[in-house]
Amino acid sequence: MKCSRVRRFLSAYHDGEIAGPKREEIARHLEGCAVCRQELEALKAAVETIRAAEVPDSPLYLATRVLAEIRQSGAGRAAARRPVWARVFASAAAVVLIAAGVWVGAMLGNGIAGSGSKANGTNEWPFEGTEPSFAEVYESMFTEE
């Protein structure tokens, strides 16, 4: 694999978005190419520098202020005035939805590889049947170049 191709995909490689044989191919190239390895190290260092910068604590009473604004606008009361049957229906729907979610989760298991969060390695998108993951998109990008 050429250096230019490897460098184009180093960002996605570093983010864990490229899996399988293509990942191995890039890894093999990196083993033998000091220049690309250096490029990856520089990329990692920049990302780690950004990650290490802290953010101020969230403001106190944000939730209180949000709720106050909702109540003031009347939106909270409007929602609460829904008829009893609507609330009963919504509660029943909640039970069905949670049960369905558990069932879908159990059915999918680990079946969809590479499309979940890199943070915990699990699939978070059981609802996206047709939307491609980056791994799938990467395949087409790789063959185009």
Partner: peptide, 29 residues
């Protein structure tokens, strides 16, 4: 990112039913 939790799912459903206290929990989360 954390996986969408059952807690979020339940709070969303209650919020959709007009439960402002449930939405407040979502805000805090």
């Amino acid at each position: 990112m954390k996986q969408p939790t059952d807690q979020d799912t339940e709070l969303v459903v209650r919020s959709k039913a007009g439960d402002l206290a449930a939405f407040e929990e979502l805000v805090k989360l």
